[in-house]
Design a protein around this nucleic acid. Structure first.
Length: 571
RNA sequence: CGGGGUGUAGCUCAGCCUGGUAGAGCACUACGUUCGGGACGUAGGAGUCGCAGGUUCAAAUCCUGUCACCCCGACCA
């Protein structure tokens, strides 16, 4: 491509709307433009990158034996009513009506549509297993779209759905997708981790997420330094600590703590470490009554774990101030597990404390020297908290570490949730009608572009991993308007590279050298060739990789083999 | 959905408090100089000040409403 024929300029200044690096660079380098909240136009450079991502995904999916299809974006409401998700999905599902007043949805995912296809087309175990996939635009009406393309309302997703006669085959298909995903993210040059995850709204049993590691990631992921345990923070198990509870030494006392509602305020006021305090959360129970959850002061409640406890309302809802007052007789901030009449669960770590500090169930006071089994009953202990770095690994060896990740892939064993709801059955070997076992597998294609930039940039701009780069090489002729031989050499080299099938960007603009260098670096083209008067007398051109700090000369007539060697050396 | 903030030229922003002829830098057009790290000079073009209503002799500026966008929160005790 000739840059002289490309009308869109790079931005020198950082657009005010962009907060994270990838969003800023995508705007500055002219990859995307915002149309409205969470809606983006992909410009030619950005689209090239997107197509590169798609190509790698397509190749690996095909290699894994998956079959590409294209399903409609608009879907009839009937299917969603049938699956139950017309009610379940909530406002993220964009619904609308056509001229005949028929309800439709804009597809946020395609389990219903593919299951409908499967029930029409698949009748025998002999047709299984099969895996259908598509790369297509999805729409989810996010509460708060942000970070540009990272959390947009409209985005491109690769979604695949596998159908099996039994659970064994499903596990096999799931494993193949795991391997395919690993191959995809490896080929894309991303540093990633697969972690065990909750199945959430989509449903099903086993599930793993693939995260690109980046500090700006919205998710916390947990992994062990001593074994291969890896999980999403919401799923990571906190093991009970070894050893017995220390003996009680202190006597129970009530101390005045006016206005001290938070753990931080209480521990500062009393001169006690947060880890020696306990906080009591009142949540709503299944029966409408309150349930108390007790955590160590420095620990965070894990809502998912809490919502799974018997008697606790799922999804978890904290009680409002009025309910707290009814249950504990005080306002939030001073609740104590002592003397509560409702059902109570204590986290393992909280239950192991002796002589701890907690609320007093009255305003502006806390209790000190509190002990389980003496001042209040021994609690029912469960895992209630988020793990923290340094916790022992549930895998058995090593300690847990926590990192930030960007979720770019998610694979599920769905089982028969949708096939049963929609009646997608096949006859098995014994001639029995069984619901198909399903798996589903997603990749956030547009998000990968942003994630790749989060992982690969410097102060000058993007540094594309080779498989993602919109162009492999950029040719930078300097002052070509005043040097016919610079211009001619650049043209000749451009024609040669294009003919050899190399994606080449020719910066034939009448711009000053500094402008050309800066733009090439902002856009992040991996390989750069400078054509200038300086080397031409000796028949030499200048090469530099985007990540290199110095340039090297090479013989102009041997450009093609020289560059090919450089491409090859990149991996 | 709750809280906070911002809407002024294509972009980044000043001007608003204290009402009185709408500004700067970048970008754009023309000409000249310059030319291996985001040049310089001269001359230009470009804005219903988000929108609607109100107050006033007079509103970008004050008031009310509304829309859009951004940030924080929705895992507090």
């Amino acid at each position: 491509m000739r840059l002289s024929a490309y009308p869109i300029q790079n931005l020198k200044e950082v657009p005010a709307e962009a907060e994270i690096v990838s969003h800023q660079l995508m705007l500055r380098a002219g990859l995307i433009r915002r149309l409205a909240g969470g809606l983006y136009t992909w410009l030619p450079f950005g689209l090239r990158v997107l197509r590169r991502v798609e190509r790698v995904i397509r190749e690996e999916m095909n290699r894994a034996g998956a079959l590409e299809v294209a399903m409609p974006v608009a879907q009839p409401a009937e299917l969603w009513v049938e699956s139950g998700r017309w009610e379940e999905f909530g406002p993220e599902l964009l619904r609308f009506r056509d001229r005949h007043a028929r309800d439709l949805v804009l597809g946020p995912t395609h389990e219903e549509v593919i299951t409908d296809l499967a029930r029409r087309e698949l009748h025998s175990y002999r047709q299984l297993p099969v895996n259908f996939y598509q790369i297509q635009t999805k729409f989810r009406d996010e509460t708060r779209p942000r970070f540009g393309v990272m959390r947009a309302r409209e985005f491109v997703m690769k979604d695949a759905y596998s159908f099996h006669v039994d659970a064994v085959s499903l596990q096999d298909g799931y494993r193949r997708m795991y391997d395919a995903y690993s191959a995809i993210f490896t080929r894309l040059g991303l540093r990633f981790r697969a972690v065990h995850a909750d199945t959430g709204a989509i449903g099903g049993s086993a599930s793993q997420e693939f995260h690109v590691l980046a500090d700006s990631g919205e998710d916390a992921i947990v992994f062990s330094d001593g074994d291969d345990y890896a999980a999403n923070l919401e799923l990571a198990a906190a093991l009970p600590a070894d050893g017995p509870r220390p003996p009680a030494r202190a006597t129970l006392a009530t101390v005045a703590t006016p206005g001290a509602r938070t753990i931080a305020e209480v521990s500062a006021l009393l001169g006690v470490a947060p880890a020696q305090t306990v906080k009591t959360l009142i949540v709503e129970g299944e029966d409408g009554g309150p349930v108390a959850l007790v955590l160590r002061g420095d620990h965070e409640l894990n809502a998912l774990k809490a919502a799974r406890l018997p008697g606790v309302l799922a999804p978890l809802r904290l009680a409002d101030a009025a309910r707290v007052a009814a249950a504990a007789g005080c306002e939030p901030g001073f609740v104590a597990p002592v003397g509560l009449r409702c059902r109570l669960y204590a986290d393992h770590a909280a239950a192991r404390l002796a002589d701890f500090v907690c609320g007093a169930n009255q305003a502006d006071a806390h209790l000190t020297g509190v002990n389980w089994g003496r001042d209040l009953a021994e609690p029912e202990t469960v895992d209630l908290r988020n793990v923290v770095a340094g916790d022992p690994s549930p895998g058995g060896r090593g300690r847990l570490q926590i990192a930030r990740g960007i979720e770019v892939g998610h694979i599920f064993q769905l089982g028969s949730k949708y096939s049963e709801a929609l009646g997608a059955t096949v006859l098995d070997e014994q001639g029995r009608s069984v619901p198909m076992q399903m798996g589903c597998y997603g990749i956030g294609v547009t998000r990968i572009v942003a994630a790749a930039i989060e992982q690969n940039h410097d102060e000058r701009g993007i540094i594309w991993p080779a498989p993602l780069a919109p162009f492999q090489v950029v040719l930078v002729p300097l002052n070509q308007a005043r040097s016919e031989r610079v211009r001619a050499t650049a043209e000749q080299l451009y024609a040669e590279l294009e003919a050899a099938g190399i994606d080449t960007l020719l910066d034939d603009r009448d711009a000053r050298p500094g402008v050309k260098f800066a733009d090439a670096e902002l856009i992040g083209i991996p390989h750069r060739v400078v054509i200038a008067e300086r080397g031409l007398d000796a028949g030499r051109l200048e090469y530099r990789h985007r990540t290199a700090t110095a340039s090297e000369d090479f013989v102009a007539t041997a450009a093609l083999p020289f560059l090919r060697a450089k491409f090859g050396a990149e991996h």
